[in-house]
């Protein structure tokens, strides 16, 4: 009986732990501001975006002709996209406890504004922005970027 109870307790404990850690491994940021038609390409699906929509690693965010969007990442950095823009969230790790950080984006086309957050303070070397023919390394600051196709 005692063993059964202990077993049940362990199952419940592990269930509650896995639920507790789920949000950390999923959303890496959210859409905070939005204008016009914006979509997220996730795998083979194109998802509609509204304010509060979570973004995940590997998502591609696209804005339409008169559209724009602002993202807030888990480390409080922000990334905004102007009209006709395309951004790929290639890699994002925000794990201060284990000292693991990574923030790699690809700015494929359009206009962008980036403001660094906690990763910029703790591990600036782990931030990289890729563009079609150049890359940007950034140390705790704000940048404005245009990428023409």
């Amino acid at each position: 009986m005692k063993t059964t109870l202990l077993g049940l307790f362990l199952i419940l404990l592990s269930a509650s732990l896995s639920v507790a850690s789920a949000p950390q491994s999923d959303a890496i940021g959210r859409v905070q501001t939005l204008k016009g038609t914006v979509s997220i390409q996730r795998g083979n699906n194109a998802l509609a975006v509204s304010i509060g929509t979570p973004v995940l690693c590997s998502d591609t965010i696209r804005t339409g002709k008169a559209a724009a969007a602002g993202l807030v990442m888990a480390d409080d950095s922000t990334l905004s996209l102007g009209p006709n823009s395309e951004l790929v969230l290639k890699d994002y790790v925000f794990n201060p406890k284990e000292g693991k950080f990574s923030f790699v984006t690809k700015m494929a086309k359009g206009t962008f504004s980036y403001l660094s957050g906690i990763i910029g303070k703790l591990a600036p070397d782990s931030i990289r922005m890729e563009m079609p023919v150049a890359t940007i390394a950034v140390r705790g600051t704000k940048l404005l970027v245009t990428v023409e196709e």
Binding site: S116, T141, V145, V147
Partner: peptide, 19 residues
């Protein structure tokens, strides 16, 4: 493709670096 990168001050006035 042609890219433009502009370094601007943070909201608190601090200016970082970019390469």
């Amino acid at each position: 493709p042609r890219h433009t990168v502009v370094l601007v001050p943070d909201p608190d006035g601090h200016v970082g670096k970019a390469e």
